[in-house]
């Protein structure tokens, strides 16, 4: 077996520019009804270099989404810091955009109107026609020509997520945050969209932080893969995927000799975590209902606007 990068060794890459850095980051949320504070991530140290595709894998409920929300600026850290180009992240910014697992596109808006959201709320200094051109270009880039005036209910799941990806990329943010974007799609659509995402990201030259619970997806897409342990999440190990790009444009990445090795190693790491997470939830940990609770708590947090960031 080829020597794999052991924990820590792949983390530092002195030659490259650090774009996002989490230092001793601890973050969680409050379960208001149960009067409990739940730590989702503890003492996270993680770096995303400029232009890289960073994938985070881990068992469900390990706090991957929480991390992404922290990078997005939707959730403030409890302890530690999270920085973008050396500056603390204190809210959302035009340099970051997100693709959501449940698409989160507005059902009352057409495809092009949904993508227009990327320009709607911020000063971008673009003329109206220019915005329209950018929207049109984005629609072509994600392959939705002819569906500009369609409503989401007329689209398939894969097409809806193309709208979500297009909306995130339209204003050309530096960082793309993807929260299990293909989790709800069937295997075939998923594979097609993975290939298109790889091509799009290369074209727009983005830094990506991508969350998934699929090992195959992680290896197919990631430059580096961070394995997050079960709750409270910490970075267990970071491994580097040394398979050249483009990986999905033609041929099967699964037939690459490194693929099997990486997959096996990654699975050995993740398996432990999954079993431990499962055991924890079997013993009545908060894992089971945590997603529902979190959504509600975050919802309330938004409407009450504790940080005044809205």
């Amino acid at each position: 077996m080829a020597s794999l990068n052991k924990p820590g060794t792949a983390v530092e890459k002195p030659g490259r520019k650090v774009l996002i850095e989490a230092k001793n980051l601890t973050i969680g949320y409050e379960l208001e009804r149960e009067r409990k504070l739940l730590t989702a991530l503890r003492d996270i140290n993680l770096i995303a270099y400029e232009g890289e595709f960073l994938v985070l894998v881990g068992p469900s409920g390990c706090g991957k989404t929480t991390f992404l929300n922290a990078v997005a600026g939707l959730l403030p850290p409890w302890e530690g810091t999270i920085t973008y180009e050396g500056k603390r992240i204190e809210g959302v910014g035009s340099d970051r955009a997100m693709v959501f697992q449940d698409y989160a596109i507005m059902p009352w808006r057409t495809v092009s109107h949904n993508i227009e959201m990327a320009f709607e709320f911020r000063h971008h200094g673009l003329a109206k026609e220019e915005v329209q051109q950018r929207i049109q270009r984005t629609i072509e880039a994600v392959g939705l020509q002819g569906f500009e005036e369609s409503y989401p209910y007329e689209l398939s799941g894969g097409m809806k997520q193309r709208v979500g990806i297009g909306r995130a990329l339209a204003a050309e943010p530096k960082v793309l945050l993807a929260d299990e974007p293909f989790g709800a799609l069937d295997a075939m659509t998923r594979q097609v969209l993975q290939g298109q995402l790889e091509a799009l990201v290369a074209e727009f030259n983005q830094t990506v932080i991508f969350i998934t619970h699929s090992i195959d997806e992680a290896i197919s897409l990631g430059d580096r893969i961070g394995v997050i342990s079960h709750r409270p999440g910490t970075v267990r190990e970071i491994i580097e995927v040394d398979i050249e790009r483009p990986r999905l444009a033609e041929g099967e990445i699964t037939s690459h000799p490194r693929y099997g090795e990486l997959r096996e190693y990654l699975w050995s790491l993740v398996k432990d975590e999954a079993i431990q997470a499962q055991a924890a939830s079997d013993f009545g940990d908060l894992d089971q209902d945590e997603d529902a609770d979190r959504t509600e708590t975050e919802h309330r947090a938004l409407l009450d606007d504790p940080g005044g960031r809205l």
Binding site: M98, M106, L310
Partner: peptide
């Protein structure tokens, strides 16, 4: 109102009042 829709609008820089007008109201 779905949280992810609100989060999406926040992500793209919508202010509190824009979230109400462009997300909560149509929803």
């Amino acid at each position: 109102t779905e949280q992810s829709l609100i989060n999406a609008a926040r992500m793209f820089g919508a202010s509190r009042s824009q979230i109400y007008r462009k997300v909560v109201l149509p929803y």
